[in-house]
Design a binder for these strands. Sequence first.
DNA 1: GTAACTGCAAAATATTTGCATCCTT
DNA 2: AAGGATGCAAATATTTTGCAGTTAC
Lengths: 138, 138
Amino acid sequence: METQIDNLLKRNQLSVTGSRKKILELFLASRGALAHGDIEKKTGEKFDRVTVYRTLQVFLEKGIIHTIPTADNSIRYALCKDECSEGHHHDNHVHFICTTCGNTTCLADVTIPEVKLPVGFKATEFQMLVNGVCMECQ
Amino acid sequence: METQIDNLLKRNQLSVTGSRKKILELFLASRGALAHGDIEKKTGEKFDRVTVYRTLQVFLEKGIIHTIPTADNSIRYALCKDECSEGHHHDNHVHFICTTCGNTTCLADVTIPEVKLPVGFKATEFQMLVNGVCMECQ
DNA sequence: GTAACTGCAAAATATTTGCATCCTT
DNA sequence: AAGGATGCAAATATTTTGCAGTTAC
């Protein structure tokens, strides 16, 4: 049986390996975004730390995942939606960071509003972050 | 003569020291935001790396500077406007990150637009980042 | 004089690189 | 079989902590 995950990897010309599959599963299972540390922990410490670094790197290059900036140290990663292709993302939704549980959620239905930039600035990409309390932590 | 910088420090109950003054000067001189590394470099390597960490930490706590999230590793810091007080920021403007020169600029005149969140999410803070080419790099 | 700040040393973390081995195709 | 992926070891880089000496008030 061809799984969704296998397809995703093959579509991006990547070999289908155990670590890649498990890391992708993790992303699919957690609706939100993951930091490097989350991945090491939640996979049950099965991979080498280095493998996680390299896997995330490759996924980023292929446009399978994207980074979500945060104000604290930790970079978060999240799955790109299908429309994303290599080097060209349509990550135009708002990201929500819960100050209680720390989870980052992609608010896929909330589109980033337009802003007018001062003359001389040319935008290529917009990101919006919202901090607050999420549904589960109310 | 009481400088602007001395006042800023005293207003926040901080002793006026050489390193603090020089780091604040740097922030005032560069219209944009600075990463930790920038500060080490641009002050001419005069301070201990540790002093920079601790100074930024204190400034953050006092609300003199705030962090700007970025998609790459580097956290940037920028001066808060006067209205910011301890623990209570009014950092409601858009930040612009130039993909050419790498500088981060506070677009003080561009206010973050409102967004409607899904039911169950309660926002406390909004951040907006724009990537693109800045005025100087056009 | 006292409390706060700094610099040095060192510990703790995080990230990157090289290389031999193993796995996918 | 060949190329790519992984794991280990080790090199770098980053951040934190403790403490003694120094400085601001």
